[in-house]
Design a protein around this nucleic acid. Structure first.
Lengths: 195, 195
DNA sequence: CAGTTTTCATAATGATCGTTATAGTAACAA
DNA sequence: TTGTTACTATAACGATCATTATGAAAACTG
């Protein structure tokens, strides 16, 4: 069957993920990726395919290994707890690693050349999927009486996601976790109540 | 004194600004810039300097020609009016031009290669300047009794800017102005009142 | 052991990046 | 008109981009 791989694929993928997290899709070069992973270029191509495929695998890993608090949050009993848990966990994640602040899922959405359009669209789709999950959760909360009849589940979902995206930008601009949490406190200050 | 310039410098700068708006600093190539401006490369270098200088001039123009609603907003009588005016104007600007949605000032903050670090820092600084302006305005509002004693001017400024940044991301993801305004409505529903 | 297969490391591919040298042309001053 | 100046346009520069031939080394099977 031939020779075995010398490097750990999972570790290499995580290292590549961190590079993308810091520099975005187009900002990360193969020189960066080989240095961070300790793996030469042909080995990266052999293990992951081309750059776009590598990024998509890194994005998958990001959702399963770093955004794992989202499914946990969606199972919490009240809409407010769902929102608060997601927001505070995101603030922590956005500032946990000084070398790659912010959110990988957001960094590729904004700017880039036309070549990066497929990647940008993939990130937009992933963002929209998260929005749909949150909206459905808030619709359930309204049906359960956890949110008042006057509440707007979709508006709340859009609002929570706007805060998430805003925090990602602010974290990239160097905000501390404490400053992000002040944003959250303000956002949650008058969450609609069913009383 | 020699030959006169054939192209309109202001028009060329505005065309370049729109390219940066859509693709960010590194995503915009000189091929894009020459096509959009109708000006050959050496003429761009002669008129504006290198790419970084051109971007900085475009950023200046962005603030003076497109973010001109900010100084207007800061002069409104109440903090809530200030926030509402800025947010609604931003929602409009973020969705006004289908070819370049979102906010130029945000697109460069997030990801990019190490070469773009000076530009990223310039955008971060500009963002911080806006934050300071808004914080000072809210501090004044608190002193004037327009905001309650319990209000946190800096927290409110951070919050408003988070919404702005979040909307920029959402606009780039294709949100309509109506959807952005639902975010704003939710954000302003948490606004503290002096009563 | 030999034979096969896969990985590894070096280096080269064509394309595109930002930047400029060069040559030609148009508009000024004298 | 003549000389000079500053613009325009073509094309080339070295560097870097993502991608891949190439050949040597290593680990499996029989």
């Amino acid at each position: 069957m031939g020779r075995h791989r010398e490097f750990d694929v999972e570790k290499a993928l995580d290292a590549a993920l961190c590079v993308f997290w810091r520099k975005g899709y187009e900002g990360a070069s193969y020189a960066d990726l080989t240095e961070a992973t300790g793996v030469e270029r042909p080995a990266l191509y052999s293990a992951f395919g081309n750059k776009e495929a590598l990024f998509r695998k890194a994005l998958d890993r990001y959702y399963t290994h770093y955004l794992d608090y989202i499914p946990v949050a969606l199972d919490l009993p009240t809409a407010r707890e769902v929102a608060a848990h997601i927001l505070y966990q995101a603030a922590d994640l956005n500032t946990r690693y000084p070398d790659h602040t912010g959110c990988l899922g957001i960094h590729g959405v904004l700017a880039g050349s036309d070549d990066a359009e497929p990647v940008r669209q993939a990130l937009i789709d992933a963002r929209a999927a998260g929005e749909a999950q949150l909206r459905q959760r808030f619709e359930r909360a309204k049906a359960e009486g956890d949110l008042p009849e006057t509440a707007d589940p979709e508006g709340l979902a859009l609002f929570v996601l706007a805060i998430l995206h805003g925090m990602a930008v602010q974290a990239k601009a160097g905000f501390s976790r404490e400053r992000l949490e002040r944003v959250i406190d303000q956002a949650l200050s008058t969450w609609p109540t069913a009383s």
